[in-house]
Design a protein around this nucleic acid. Structure first.
Lengths: 256, 256
DNA sequence: GCTCATTTGTCCGTATGTATG
DNA sequence: CCATACATACGGACAAATGAG
């Protein structure tokens, strides 16, 4: 009845994921979880090596990766100090907005426009927005940062006829909510959100300053105006080690 | 303005994640996305190798991993046939229930009890349930399958005083909803859900029949009875390649 | 039956990355 | 730092199976 609770920390060999990476991921998570808050230091390398059942060198490789990310700093003769701990909660609800989502946990919010283009909507996007296949859409690529640290990359599609020029407006306002407002959409709501997870790839690694191989949470969402007309399709990629998505009942009174 | 859209398929070297694994993950996703539905076959190995910019042997390693999972089956002289495609939608809302969540997409649902124990609630669990630290809780470990294929592992905590014997009841009913009902909780609602993603580890790999190194979606949730009293804390680990979590406005009329 | 192109399967060797002690 | 063992990735060559002509 009580069998099978291998509480011991285990790493999988020959999985295609190097042990040092598995351990680095695990430790980053533990740090963000506050497991070492009492001392502010990581356990000694030998202790970690024993806990994970690996050689000390392997733990050192993992530590090097975390040090490279600026999360820990090894000090000779002392130990390894925890430098930074960042995991943000991002609430998903009917009234999800990026700025609102993180606003209470951090000071410095900013979205940056990476690129924009007008193009035919891909099939999935057209379907989600209720458009005929091939309808021209405005596509925006953004990076969103909290306290100067990038937390997500977003690809956003807007029907081109209704939202021409949203790229320039976003570039100025750095906010989708504000851009909508200028274009005559005073308010909007989240129709649906799908969440999945993949390994980080391509540009996201660079923009999110991830160590390659990291995990990304993908939230695919559709927003509508208050009449229920779809106005935005977006695919936001969050750095999984820095963000936690939360789904909560609506704060109340949010029903338009 | 249009720079930086490297549409080309890229894999990251020296990331601590083997190329064959990155490619396997990518192809599994593409398969589940229906990218090859027209032919039901994978592109030839040489084509994939060119697309990912790797050697054909590396693609073969990735294929071998997918074949091991039963997703594809290579046939000499013909190509590689796609055998199975499974990605389930799991809705998360105020009235999330496992059986309801998947009920409309699949036929054969079952939860299996792996283990149960009564123990002091860990700090995070106690806090979430509004209990004093160390309050005894019943812990259940479950595996949930759809059509005989495991989709998630769950660790569930219940206040021990109110739910003694829930392990036996769950073992019989194979449903948490049914177990609650027998213990005098006719209905319950989801208070909060947190979603994150990690690499699969330990027992989850075995129970979910994952290739080690795969990604897991972690949903940490608290359920309350209709008086708002927390009755369940659970941490459900979904195989990210088989499940997509969806967050939608409540279907309406769902209030019991 | 045969040839041919296509595609997967298997073998060789070699360089580099990973992990141990 | 060193040495050792194994995994990963590459490059090439050829065999085996299939289908088209």
């Amino acid at each position: 009845m009580t069998a099978g609770f291998a509480g011991a920390e285990m790493v999988e060999r020959q999985s295609g994921v190097a042990l040092w990476r598995q351990i680095a991921d695990r430790m980053r998570l533990a740090i963000n979880n506050g497991d070492f808050d009492e001392t502010g230091m990581m356990p000694p390398e030998v202790v970690l090596a024993a806990r994970f059942g690996v050689n000390r060198h392997t733990v050192r490789s993992a530590m090097a990766a975390l040090a490279e990310e600026g999360i820990v700093r090894p000090i000779q003769g002392i130990g390894t100090r925890i430098e930074r701990r960042d995991r943000l909660r991002f609430p998903i609800s009917r009234r999800t907005r990026f700025s609102q989502g993180l606003g209470n946990q951090t000071r410095n919010l900013e979205g940056r426009l990476l690129a924009a283009a007008t193009e035919a909507a891909p099939a999935t996007v057209a379907e989600a927005l209720g458009l005929a296949p091939g309808t021209p859409c405005m596509r925006l690529e953004t990076v969103n940062s909290a306290d100067r640290r990038p937390v997500s990359c977003g690809t956003h599609y807007f029907p081109a006829d209704r939202f021409t020029g949203i790229d320039a407006i976003y570039d100025r306002t750095r906010s989708i909510t504000a851009s909508f407002r200028e274009l005559g959409v005073p308010d909007y709501v989240r129709r649906s959100t799908e969440i999945s997870a993949i390994h980080a790839e391509g540009d996201d690694i660079r923009h999110l300053k991830l160590s390659p191989g990291a995990i990304i949470l993908v939230a695919t969402a559709v927003n509508t105006d208050l009449d229920g007309v779809p106005i935005q399709f977006s695919r936001t990629r969050f750095a999984a080690d820095r963000v936690k998505l939360t789904v909560e009942p609506e704060p109340d009174g949010s029903r338009g």
